[in-house]
């Protein structure tokens, strides 16, 4: 081991590219093996008829033609969109308020940890707990409603309520995490801006809408993009609570893909559905990126 010469050479060569590549390598292997390769294979499978066990048979665009004429697919898109609108709408507003309250009122780390707590509960557990709380007959949620003199609600068992309920369960779980992301963004806004606002006699509300929100835009944009992508892929909460029912009221796209593949062995068609979801997400993300101008900041 000739340590000194090595150190000397290091000092002269400042190029860390090789080392960087070495560090990136493990992640890249994972990305290629578990993301890119399955994606390419999925694209190919979407052009085939494949039941998993016998060899795939090339059918061209047939799966996509079937999809265009499949009422369950269109229903799944509608149901998923409704879910995303409720989920993201409520979650973003609630998280923003939480984040601002955390910044303006309290610096307590304990409070921040508490806000994050629901996020640490697994999706399936959260869904099961709410399934019990909101059970039509035995749930404490419905018991409360009857005490208040209201009618019981079939939260997970009525076609009207199923999607809003699932969306709000996930708001409860993700709100704290989103709030923390936004809170981190709030820290990037210089105090001087707020001091100036106070000097000018701006009210708290006015400061929020004229300073906080505009300066937070890039962060909000990013948070929205990430949470919308996650929201479109809702699966486990639905699988645990309603399994797509009542009828097709909560048959979201991911659940339909899963059902086609693993219950009906129609992997070709399921792949085509997945490609549709991929394209949809790419379009939605692109539009969001452009609208929120998430790549630029107004701070400088």
């Amino acid at each position: 081991m000739s340590a000194p010469p090595l150190r000397a050479r290091r000092a002269t060569r400042r190029d860390d590219t090789r080392l960087a590549l070495l560090f990136i390598l493990p992640a890249t292997v994972g990305l290629v093996t578990f993301y890119f390769w399955p994606m390419i294979r999925g694209l190919w499978l979407s052009l085939t008829s494949w039941d998993l066990l016998s060899p795939a048979e090339f059918v061209g665009l047939q799966n996509y033609r079937d999809m265009a004429a499949d009422p369950v697919f269109w229903n799944a898109l509608r149901v998923t969109a409704l879910y995303v609108v409720i989920n993201i709408g409520v979650q973003t507003v609630a998280a923003l308020l939480l984040a601002v309250l955390m910044q303006r009122l309290s610096q307590s780390t304990l409070l921040r940890s508490l806000v994050l707590a629901p996020y640490l509960v697994s999706n399936v557990v959260a869904a099961l707990v709410f399934l019990w709380i909101l059970d039509f007959q035995l749930g404490i949620g419905n018991q409360l409603l009857t005490w208040l003199g209201l009618d019981r609600i079939g939260f997970f068992t009525s076609q009207t309520w199923a999607i809003p309920t699932i969306a709000l369960v996930n708001v409860w779980r993700h709100m704290g995490y989103t709030a923390l992301l936004i809170f981190a963004g709030l820290q990037t806004i210089p105090h001087t801006v707020y001091e100036a606002a106070r000097m000018d006699g701006a009210s708290e509300t006015r400061t929020f809408f004229r300073i906080t929100v505009p300066l937070l835009r890039p962060i909000l944009g990013l948070v929205l993009i990430i949470s919308v992508i996650g929201s479109f892929q809702v699966f486990d909460t639905v699988a645990v609570t309603t399994n797509g029912g009542p009828v097709d009221a909560s048959r979201v796209l991911q659940l339909y893909i899963y059902d086609k593949a693993f219950a009906q062995f129609d992997f070709g068609y399921a792949s085509a559905l997945s490609v549709a979801l991929l394209v949809l997400l790419m379009v939605v993300t692109f539009v969001q990126y452009r609208i929120t101008r998430a790549g630029q900041t107004d701070l400088n």
């Binding site: 039509f136 007959q137 035995l138 079939g154 997970f156 068992t157 009525s158 309603t242 399994n243 797509g244 029912g245 009542p246």
Partner: peptide, 21 residues
């Protein structure tokens, strides 16, 4: 008989019998 709203996608008739429902 209980409406769909009460039993949902995971009916539990033995629980209904056991609880006197």
């Amino acid at each position: 008989m209980a409406p769909y709203e009460e039993v949902g996608t995971e009916p539990n008739p033995q629980q209904a019998l056991g609880s006197g429902r």
